[in-house]
Design a protein around this nucleic acid. Structure first.
Lengths: 169, 169
DNA sequence: GCTATGTTTCAGAATATTCTGAACATTTCT
DNA sequence: AGAAATGTTCAGAATATTCTGAAACATAGC
């Protein structure tokens, strides 16, 4: 891969990390490993990305913890090297699952609680919260399926990327 | 609605704001307005949420800009009052559209660029990036549909919250 | 015009997040 | 054992984000 393309990819991936809540450095390291055939050592990573050893070390550990990279040992080398796991799914899953649990579920519960204690006849509030609940319920189902199993989510992905996955009109 | 339930809802909604990238104060104000029948003035909002006038003012403006709240005028009152729009969709749409454009699209482009400049025979990298591209492509289609029109997204929502929206196994 | 009431703005304070780098730990080599 | 190479930790620096509050601004009523 050309250097420029690789660098662009690394930076874009870094920015995109925000979308699912992982920080810039982690996302950049992940991207770099994804785009590199050869295992990379901590040294090369800090050089190529211009980050500190400490930062790189922590990020690598965390990426390993999410299961998206793997530490490997090369013959004749003392250092640790890292490669990306082929399977990118796991990261998305685990992060999604975690965020759902921490951010989504409590909000949905609180919303339902709020709805149940809405006074009779307060139609306006009922209606607003009802609509919201409908949205969140749909999202929740979607997430539940998506997070149910790898197999299920693969099927779902295929299905969703097909041409017409739901009835139009 | 009971006060405790309302407060819980406001706080949960506030935390959940992070999920779609709006800040705590904005989300809390939005929740408060959603859960309140009567229009609220800036004063009441700052009191109930314990935030400054300045902050409240900016958040209200931005919420108005996203089209999720509306400014109203009450007879005999000089102050501005605010109510939530019944339609919660618009916010989710616009925010999603904006984030897609700013964070998602560039990453996908960069990924494709990277793929196209991958050297022949570099199967490993090809495979990894290919898988990623497949995921992102599915997500993109999903988003495109979701963001295409309100009607389309309503249909989609209904569809997705139904019992079995895609072929199992 | 002047005052009362209400809103907006924005510089800088407070807070949260991310990163650095030096100290320390560990392993391998001599 | 000592030295060199490598990895990890973490206190606090750097940065980014969010919030405050006081001043500027707007408008209505007298």
């Amino acid at each position: 891969m050309q250097d420029k393309a690789r660098r662009d990819f690394v930076e874009s991936w870094g920015s995109m990390g925000a979308l699912w809540g992982i920080n810039r450095s982690m996302a950049r390291i992940h991207a770099l490993l994804l785009a590199t055939r050869e295992p990379l050592g901590l040294e090369e990573i800090t050089e190529q990305l211009g980050i500190s050893r400490g930062n790189a070390s922590v990020c690598l550990k965390e990426l390993r913890h999410w299961g998206v990279i793997r530490r490997v040992h090369l013959m004749g080398e003392r250092r640790d090297f890292y490669i990306a796991e082929e399977d990118v799914w796991s990261m998305l899953f685990r992060i999604a699952a975690e965020r759902k649990k921490r951010e989504f579920d409590p909000a949905l519960s609180a919303l339902r609680e709020a709805m149940s204690s809405t006074e009779e006849g307060d139609d306006l509030v009922q209606e607003r919260l009802g609509e919201l609940e409908e949205i969140l319920r749909a999202v929740e189902r979607l997430l539940q399926r998506f997070l149910a199993s790898e197999e299920a989510s693969r099927a779902m992905l295929k299905f969703m990327s097909a041409k017409v996955p739901y009835p139009q009109k």
